[in-house]
Every structure is written in structure tokens, then in C-alpha cells.
């Protein structure tokens, strides 16, 4: 029993790290630009296909092609903000929702057209290896993914806390008008925020590739978890999204283990609803908002 619990906890925590990369991106875009990016899951998908083709065509390991998918999607993010989101910012919620939702549908269908609905996997040297600690085993690919995810989250945190651009981003999120009076160009800050968010989602895709299949609809798995994590961890709160994601990974894993193979999400949503009843603003929502 204890071993099963420990095993479920570890599995959940490791996949929670991937959820965190996606949800941090969603919460960053929401916090700074005030737009909900429904296409964030499809960016994960794009990251997966990038690493898939890097591996199959060029023989590049996904951990290395992370260095391709992240900058590529950062640039995509900057362009997305500059050419699309920026134009609907003043139009209110509906056009913004339509824009990112349409982008999600478009990317899924383009992927279907180009890659078919096949599940594509790649085999790395570490795909099937595991570390055994007593009776508990830890899949190496997932451990690496978790480690890199935590490292990237920490780097983002350091960026937001210590650099001028990071502080400007937080200032812009808290009061865009006054931040302009400080000489901060919101277009620049917004573009970097969306770029970073997409780079993180792309990283999630690359990190998943050694142990998770790529297919055009794969983004839906992750966007659903990301939205729950973002609300659970309080909208716009990066640390909150990280902690909520890890909690959800664990809840899902315990659900699969003890309720049923298809019931992981039930446990996640029960946890979500109970939390919202007790703390409507999420785990980290103060009274100020």
C-alpha cells in the first residue's frame, strides 16, 4: 500500500512538472497581457512535433532540440502578440477569446492535415530506463523532464524578480497605465511575456517527447490541466500555477491508482471544486483583488 502511494506520488509529481510549464505560460500571458490563450496546448503540440522531426530526420535528442523549439516558439510568441493579439487588446473579451480559440482550432487542423492523426513516438536511449529506489521506480525520461521543467520555472522566477525587464513586466501586469508613466513600453513587455510563455510550452513539448506520443489533439490534455492549475493557483500568479500544477499531477495520479484508470481527472476536479468553494480566488488569492 505504502509503496503504491509513494509510486503514485512520484509519478504525479513528475508529470505535474510538465503541467507547470504549460500553466505558467497561460498565467503569465493572462497576468501581463490580460488575454486567455486557448492555443497554449497547441504550442505544446508544436514543440512535440519540432522535437519529433528533429529526432527522426536529424537524429537530434529531444533534450537538445529543446534549444531549437524554445527559441523558435519564443519568436512565434513575439509575432503572435505583435501581429494578432495586440490588435484585439482594446476590443474586449470576446474578440480575444475568438482569436486564441480560432488559433487553437487552426493549429490542430493544420497538424491533422500535415501529420495525420497518427500517434508518433520516438525512442531515446533513456526512454525505457528507470531508477529503482527500493520497490519504487522512477522513469529517467520523466525525471529529466521534471528537472528541466523546474529549472526553467526557476529561471523565469529569477527573471521576473531580478531583471529590469522582469520587474517592468510585473509592474505592467499590476498597473499598465502607470507603468507607461515610468517609460515602460507595453508593446515590448507584452511581446516578451507571450514569447516566454510560448517558449515554456514548447519546452514542455520537447520534454514530453521521450515518453509521450505526439498527435494533433495532444494539446487538449494539457490545456485543460493548465486552465485548472491557473485558476487553482490564482489567476496571474506564476508561483501559484507551479504549485497548483504539481498538486494536480499528484491528485490525478492518486486518482488513477485508487479510483480507476479513467478517473484521474475526477479527483483533480473534485479537488479543484472544493478549493474554489473554500477559496474562491484560488490558493494564493488575497483579499485585495
Amino acid at each position: 500500500m505504502l509503496v503504491t502511494v509513494a509510486q503514485a506520488l512520484i509519478n504525479g509529481l513528475l508529470i505535474g512538472g510538465i503541467y507547470a510549464l504549460v500553466s505558467i505560460g497561460v498565467t503569465l500571458i493572462f497576468g501581463v497581457v490580460k488575454v486567455v490563450n486557448f492555443a497554449q496546448g497547441e504550442i505544446v503540440m508544436a514543440g512535440m512535433y519540432t522535437s519529433y522531426f528533429c529526432a527522426t530526420l536529424l537524429g537530434i535528442d529531444p533534450l537538445v532540440s529543446l534549444l531549437i523549439s524554445m527559441p523558435a516558439l519564443f519568436i512565434v510568441g513575439v509575432c503572435l502578440q505583435h501581429f494578432l493579439i495586440r490588435r484585439v487588446l482594446k476590443l474586449g473579451d470576446m474578440p480575444q477569446i475568438f482569436l486564441t480559440f480560432a488559433l487553437s482550432l487552426l493549429l490542430t487542423n493544420v497538424a491533422l492535415l500535415l501529420f495525420k492523426a497518427d500517434y508518433r513516438t520516438i525512442q531515446t536511449s533513456y526512454s525505457d530506463t528507470a531508477i529503482h529506489i527500493g520497490p519504487v521506480y522512477i522513469a529517467v525520461a520523466k525525471l529529466i523532464a521534471f528537472g528541466v521543467a523546474m529549472l526553467l520555472s526557476a529561471l523565469l522566477w529569477v527573471f521576473l524578480r531580478t531583471t529590469d525587464l522582469g520587474k517592468a513586466m510585473r509592474a505592467s501586469a499590476q498597473n499598465p497605465e502607470v507603468s507607461m508613466l515610468m517609460g515602460i513600453n507595453p508593446d515590448l513587455v507584452f511581446a516578451v511575456a507571450v514569447g516566454l510563455a510560448l517558449a515554456l510550452a514548447g519546452a514542455a513539448g520537447s520534454l514530453l517527447m521521450p515518453f509521450y506520443p505526439a498527435y494533433p489533439m495532444v494539446g487538449q490534455v494539457f490545456i485543460l490541466m493548465a486552465f485548472v492549475a491557473v485558476v487553482l493557483g490564482t489567476l496571474g500568479n506564476v508561483t501559484g500555477a507551479l504549485i497548483a500544477s504539481l498538486m494536480m499531477g499528484v491528485a490525478e495520479s492518486l486518482g488513477i491508482q485508487f479510483v480507476g484508470a479513467d478517473s484521474g481527472l475526477i479527483v483533480v476536479f473534485v479537488m479543484f471544486l472544493v478549493t474554489l468553494i473554500i477559496r474562491p480566488n484560488g490558493l494564493f488569492g488575497g483579499k485585495r483583488r
Binding site: D164, K167, A168, R170, A171, S179, M182, G183, I184
Partner: peptide
């Protein structure tokens, strides 16, 4: 401190 630092962003 961060508020003041942001004042000297330019």
C-alpha cells in the same frame, strides 16, 4: 525598493 527601481527604468 522595486517600485523605486522601476521609476528609474529608462
Amino acid at each position: 525598493r522595486e517600485n523605486l527601481e522601476i521609476g528609474a527604468y529608462l
